[in-house]
Design a binder for these strands. Structure first.
Lengths: 145, 145
DNA sequence: TATTGTTATACTCTATAACTATA
DNA sequence: TATAGTTATAGAGTATAACAATA
């Protein structure tokens, strides 16, 4: 448990916040599928790892309110990227599952995303990129805490 | 210049993108001043380092279109956080400068932001936090490329 | 009575297009 | 003719509040 009252740590926190906000604004524009928002992409990514989930679970994981997730899931279903099934035990809930089409799309899109980020990462040297690569899983953990 | 055709690098890029998007969504809600958007805060941060700039320069730095910056600058001025002066050499341009009030506000807010991020960072161990601290400046560089 | 999900509605932020003033 | 900034307008994404169905 880091001591955030320390000056350097506070500075790092501010630096991190600023960089994350700026980067996210740029990434928003680089969409795999032009018609899919970052959160919609993120939901597909989550489903790719956890298999399937209820709308409520997805809303909590993506830090979005339930009505927003309703809208997102409906849009993804209309595009054939997820399938909605009744919950086996609780008839209030639904189960959202990714379709084969979503798997193919996510896979196919990886190349394009890399292409854009490559243009940014090429501005880094090997050491900087190594630092960032090491930090990626930590950032993911932080985002999920 | 890293080789992004390599599988691990591509995976790191995806991990990075996902984490940055998720984190940014959460940070959006943790505002110093409830009435200031992330971009507005970011503009103040930029002015804190570069002193003053024209609206056009700010729009480019924040990766926002000029009309959006017009709105942001107008809002910041109405709150007494920036001052608008005529450009000394080009009467089409304006010079945006931070006020003393903005300096105080940014300073005062640092504690609060740290308080929130601390709750997340406390979920990391020392090594993870060290990794993230090292990556912060690289992320900033990447965001500015 | 509490919880899951939905519908209706409004708000915030940003973008594009068209305009004004200056270079 | 080109550039800096603005105004007007539209669109995307999200939130809150009120509601329906089920537990």
């Amino acid at each position: 448990m880091p001591d955030l009252t320390h000056g350097d740590d506070a500075a790092a926190v501010n630096s991190l916040r600023s960089a994350v906000m700026r980067l996210s604004r740029r990434l928003k524009h680089q969409r795999v599928d032009e018609s899919l928002s970052p959160t919609e992409m993120s939901v597909l990514g989550t489903l790719a790892t956890c298999g399937s989930a209820t709308p409520g679970e997805l809303a909590r994981k993506e830090h979005v309110q339930p009505p927003s997730m309703t809208r997102i899931v409906a849009l993804l279903e209309s595009k054939g990227l997820v399938r909605l099934e009744p919950h086996p035990e609780d008839r209030r809930q639904k189960v959202v599952t990714q379709t084969e089409q979503a798997v193919v799309m996510l896979d196919e899109s990886r190349r394009r995303r890399s292409a854009f980020l490559a243009t940014l990462v090429e501005g880094l040297d090997e050491d900087e990129w190594a630092t960032l690569r090491a930090a990626a899983p930590v950032l993911e953990k932080l985002a999920h805490l």
